[in-house]
Write a protein that binds this DNA or RNA. Sequence first.
DNA 1: ACCGGTTCCGAATACTCTTCGGGGTATGGC
DNA 2: GCCATACCCCGAAGAGTATTCGGAACCGGT
Lengths: 151, 151
Amino acid sequence: MLDAIDAAILRELQNDARISNKDLAARVNVAASTCLERVRALQRRGVLAGFHADADPAALGRPLQAYIAVRVRPHNRDVVEPFIRFVLDLPETIALSHIAGADDFLVHVAVRDAAHLQRLLLDGFTSRREVAHLETQLIFSHIRKWDIGPM
Amino acid sequence: MLDAIDAAILRELQNDARISNKDLAARVNVAASTCLERVRALQRRGVLAGFHADADPAALGRPLQAYIAVRVRPHNRDVVEPFIRFVLDLPETIALSHIAGADDFLVHVAVRDAAHLQRLLLDGFTSRREVAHLETQLIFSHIRKWDIGPM
DNA sequence: ACCGGTTCCGAATACTCTTCGGGGTATGGC
DNA sequence: GCCATACCCCGAAGAGTATTCGGAACCGGT
């Protein structure tokens, strides 16, 4: 399903999405035209879902990150879907997970400082009727692995 | 610190890191040469930390994701640093957060299936002496916002 | 108005992307 | 063995893009 060349292409593009096709081809040892077609095939197949610049939240004035675990009651579609939309529309939100367990959602946010986080929690979350419980954990450091490979 | 053009460049590149410089320039209404220089300045300043292809874990045979909350005892440098290296070397790991609270780390993993997750937990984590407590939460869905802006 | 510093632009060259025809190579039928 | 099919790969070349650089425009201070 994914041969050695595809895996190498994936690795290189996860490492640097702006590498030129020519350089990419040289790195994985195929002709540029072949490489281009393989990249497009990976996109068509959905293996390559997109290419994104990685901006540093700290450099954008948001040096503090946190996870907010949220319990939403009642936990049904009519309540959950607007809540998801609300969270994704918050500029503070970086990522949102819908999870199984005591908590229902884990929201990853980046904020200016502790006061900003407090305002977000009080005005943004606890003021909503469906939010039954909140638990916030500060993030000291967050490391994302860019090169995830096939298993 | 970040004018409207920089913000627009950031937005476009977070949306599609492989856009050509010419198209990017057209979108943000500056000359191509200006645009190129601004992108490089953003990289120099560390605002643009990198460009990464986004691979779909499910398409790579890892449709199941989970958070693993870990308590590491004793929580000191000599124990924590090897643990971090261990987690980052796991092919299953997508991201690792060092957090404040009852738990010390939150590990985001993508695995093949429940059996794979179980093996990872038992053989990878609980077999390590410093791992004092584990709590695993399955992820139903994970949405990452690509366009984080300045505040 | 003048200066210094900065930012922006456009033209030109060097380089890259992309298409497409053609040629290998593996597979399976006979 | 021999052919047909399908697949993948390659190189050449025109179209398109990146990058550099000199000069123009702007801005704030005096």
